[in-house]
Nucleic acid binder design. Structure first.
Lengths: 172, 172
DNA sequence: GCAATTTAGTTACAGATGAAACCAATTCCA
DNA sequence: TGGAATTGGTTTCATCTGTAACTAAATTGC
């Protein structure tokens, strides 16, 4: 799609100068928390994904499922959803791929036969054990410019925000 | 895809108990910064997207482009990429949709005819002016449990992390 | 000058995604 | 009981996404 040549622009559509919004500046994007978080998070998860994506043939949702199961032990798909804030379709597909690769197994839950219990296989656990330290190394590098006080502050503030987001917004 | 009935599980694939990973616990997911950021950010952007998605028929990348243009005035698509950390394909498509909806115009840059200068139309500016306060309200609600000191700390730490992510990881 | 390289942006394609529809097991409650 | 509503999970479909290949304009090196 070609840009419209200048000559065809109507006067009404003419560009606003860089100062035009200064009067009613509504939203200073670079100070807007959701925006900052989004950009930062994107950069970080892309960087971490590079660590495991090619090397282990793992997608982001797959790694998340493995990480949750590795950390907390077997649980239902629904529980994985809650822990990761991913929707159930995404989890379902990640689980299907992981099961096909024999990295986890699904067992029917005897007490509620709609549910299946997901558990890493030894293979899955081995991969989890291998990726964990790599991911931690990335985190360490990221946090390296922060002193102890900064880290504590970050931890506290994140906890507050997590709580706030949990109550303010109805969780999907 | 049905779960495999329990009886067909091999012993080797049996589930790990919740304690099995306690010995070699590699990664405490709930303390892992990239994970926490990702969950938090997902929740927030979903909440904000709800504000404008249906009401203005805007996707996330479209809103980002509008926000940058609204905030900083006309610029090239490339400049938008840098400001939003979105890749150029995404920006290109968002711009195409916005142009089709007459929310922005592209003019050929006379000084470099490969480039086009993007600028919000009056329509686009009106939408931007309407969404801004709504987005800010969501942010305010999110930040409400934080005191002044917490907000300052958050600001500082985010700046450090942004710098750290910028230098540690080669930007996409 | 002008071929070779670089840069701005679009398009094609293959895979990922979410909303909604769906199936099956469970719970609710008259 | 037994039908309606709920819940766990999968599938479908239309859309979104990123990689890579592409076009066109500008710059570089000679």
């Amino acid at each position: 799609m070609k840009p419209i040549p200048s000559a065809e622009l109507s006067a009404a559509d003419a560009a606003t100068g860089p100062t035009a919004q200064a009067a009613g500046a509504v939203l200073a994007l670079e100070r807007f928390l959701p925006y900052r978080l989004s950009v930062l998070t994107n950069r970080i998860s892309t960087a971490i994904a590079r660590v495991y994506a090619e090397r282990f043939d793992l997608t982001v949702p797959e790694w998340r499922v493995m990480a949750v199961l590795g950390r907390f032990g077997p649980m239902s798909a629904n529980a994985v959803c809650e822990r990761t804030a991913m929707d159930k379709v995404r989890v379902s597909r990640a689980v299907a791929r992981l099961a096909a690769a024999r990295r986890l197994v699904r067992r029917v839950d005897i007490r509620d036969r709609r549910r299946s219990v997901l558990a890493l296989t030894p293979t899955g656990r081995a991969i989890y054990a291998e990726i964990g330290p790599l991911a931690l190394a990335v985190e360490a590098r990221l946090l390296s410019p922060l002193g102890a006080a900064d880290r504590a502050a970050l931890d506290r503030v994140l906890a507050l925000l997590e709580a706030s987001a949990g109550t303010s917004f109805t969780k999907a």
